[in-house]
Design a binder for these strands. Structure first.
Length: 556
RNA sequence: GCGCCAGUAGCUCAGUGGAUAGAGCAACGGCCUUCUAAGCCGUUGGUCGCUGGUUCGAUCCCAGCCUGGCGCGCCA
């Protein structure tokens, strides 16, 4: 149940009734029938600006329109009262009886509270992280992992079916480069003198991979005589090693992908060249100096892009079109990519190509997660795999823990450039916002342990409404009732940070309630009532934290 | 030069076409004989980058400008 939607429905009915009666005209272009949250609680729980926005078209005063609508919204049991105030807002106050009932429902629903079901769930594919298989995952991947997984959680929670996908770029130049780099380190290990490839991967981790492969596949390496075959062999083993490591790190981060999609298989199955043929048949491809190009200038790009080089090798761009076509052919209703800011320039040409292939672009959604500035001691750390300088996701998890890391990456909107001060995150860990949330949960668990010890009964059905006639309880119950719509909004807009903001408010509401009201007392009926409210808060906190992939500890 | 993102409190950032713009941290002052003080209360702190425009109403939308970050490969 999503209250905000239901208020919107009530509004729609009222307007329809007023139209039927002849008070309003039906056709109101540009006037939204929206429901919003007032800034100040004295203006109620929901506010409707419809009267203000439609006044001009209806040629009536906003107050008059508001009164008319309020009349029709009348007698819903969930609504305590409706006020129409200057300049013409319709303010809606939820009834405390409804809030009380909702609180008890929360406890019945437990883990399911906030979850929505859809009559026609969308099949959603969400691709994220997709780091190159040339080394360990870094901080940028960590943000993508946290954000992507949380969005996937939100979509599942609000009724869609979600497939998490990781695209392995195990094809092209970098594979060769990786192979040469690792092979050079293997030869060093064997005491041979080698020139390390200048444009190779210089990171220390290459030596680890080399040692691993040397001990495991030493004999195979001895047997392969041809240099290019050897490089290829080593490269494949290195990729396997890296992907395995990435998978392990991600699992440690509570992220599990259903699909690991290899770029190489696209080429092997000839999907790349078949995609080229489709594009050719659409007449959007031309040749020039032995190269094949896509006429992307016809699709609002600033220049035409090469699909096949003059030596016959396809570009990444062509493979990417084939990949997105492949996803499309798998029958998804919505295909989400989470990309880094350095890829934003690709959107236009990719969409152009997909459009040229006759694919509807409204099924694709590309989200750009802005960059992460990693700071140490207040100074920016530059990250470059080639130069071997970077902080790995593994290091991050070891330093500050999964909970803090996931929370930090998700607490800001996607478009925000994120400053992540490692030193600060570690040092200030006890004053970290994530602990504030977890503390609320742990505190409640502790209360229940204590209640149990003291022999308090806990039967939410027996809780009585009269104990909640105080500011803290009312405020808290209102927040709890809003969890489903917060989750729905966050999912719909792909804005996971809304959940962190919301949970912050719930935790705040709880801590205040806890300070103001003693829960376990001789007044057993009151204790029962308060425990019921605490139980509902615990469920909302736990469900919200679960969406974020952050643990809800029972004690701290 | 073109494109994307950002510019809101000392710092990191939420937020909204509407009513008195918020949080965390930092600073300062209070609150534990009683259920977890990782908490609560209070104080200090703002030209919502600048200039125009649209609107009954703009921090929010539009245009221009300024500043910062990133991108502008036949790398992936």
């Amino acid at each position: 149940m999503n209250l905000k939607n239901e208020i919107a429905t009530i509004l729609a009915h009222s307007i329809a009734a007023a139209v039927a009666e002849g008070s309003f005209q039906d056709d109101l272009p540009g006037v939204e029938r929206k429901v919003e949250y007032p800034r100040d609680q004295k203006f109620g729980d929901y506010a409707i600006p419809f009267a203000l926005e439609s006044a001009k078209l209806l040629r009536k005063s906003p107050m008059e329109i508001g009164q008319k609508l309020a009349q029709y919204m009348g007698s819903d049991p969930r609504i305590e009262k409706i006020e129409v105030v200057k300049p013409g807002f319709i303010n809606i106050f939820l009834s405390s009886g409804f809030l009380f009932k909702t609180m008890k429902d929360i406890i019945v629903q437990g883990k399911e509270y906030g979850r929505a079901r859809k009559e026609n769930p969308r099949r959603v594919n969400i691709e994220f992280v997709s780091a190159n298989p040339t080394g360990p995952l870094n901080i940028v991947s960590a943000r993508a992992a946290a954000v992507g997984d949380t969005i996937a959680n939100l979509l599942e929670f609000t009724g869609d079916t979600v497939n998490r996908e990781f695209y392995i770029n195990d094809f092209g130049n970098q594979v060769l480069l990786l192979g040469r780099s690792v092979l050079a380190r293997i030869r060093e290990l064997r005491g041979e003198t080698v020139d390390f490839p200048e444009d190779g991967y210089h990171g220390e981790y290459i030596r680890d991979i080399a040692a691993q492969i040397n001990s495991q596949y030493g004999e195979d390496i001895n047997e392969i005589k041809e240099e290019s075959a050897l490089i290829d062999f080593v490269a494949q083993k290195a990729i396997e090693y890296n992907v395995k490591g990435q998978k392990k790190d991600l699992e440690k981060f509570n992220v599990r992908f259903q699909t690991w999609f290899s770029e190489k298989t696209l080429h092997e199955k000839d999907e790349v060249m078949m995609t080229l043929q489709v594009l050719q048949s659409r007449g959007v491809v031309f040749s020039e100096e032995g190269k094949t190009l896509f006429k992307s200038t016809d699709f609002d790009d600033d220049k035409d892009r090469v699909l096949v080089r003059d030596d016959g090798r396809p570009t990444y761009f062509l493979a990417d079109i084939a990949y997105h076509n492949d996803k499309m052919q798998r029958g998804y209703d919505l295909i989400i990519d989470i990309w880094g800011p350095d890829h934003h320039g690709h959107i236009k040409r990719l969409f152009g190509a997909l459009k040229a292939m006759g694919l509807t672009e409204d099924k694709f959604k590309i989200l750009i997660a802005q960059q992460v500035n990693l700071l140490m001691e207040g100074e920016t750390v530059k990250m470059s795999k080639r130069l071997g300088q970077f902080s790995t996701m593994r290091d991050l998890i070891d330093e500050i823990g999964v909970d803090v890391a996931r929370y930090f990456f998700v607490m800001r909107s996607l478009e925000s450039h994120l400053d992540f001060d490692l030193t600060l995150a570690k040092k200030q860990s006890s004053e970290n916002p994530v602990f504030y949330l977890q503390y609320a949960h742990a505190r409640i668990c502790s209360l229940f342990r204590e209640a149990d010890k003291r022999g308090h009964a806990y039967d939410p059905e027996l809780a009585r409404a009269e104990y909640f006639d105080n500011e803290e309880s009312q405020a808290l119950m209102k927040l709890l009732a809003k969890f489903p719509e917060e989750a729905a909004d966050a999912a719909e807009k792909f804005e996971p940070h809304r959940i962190t903001t919301f949970l912050m408010k719930v935790a705040q509401g709880f801590h205040k309630f806890y300070t103001e009201h003693r829960i376990l007392t001789e007044d057993r009926e009151m204790s029962l009532a308060y425990l019921t409210l605490c139980g509902a808060v615990r469920i909302v906190m736990a469900n919200g934290l679960r969406l974020l992939g952050v643990s809800a500890p029972e004690q701290m």
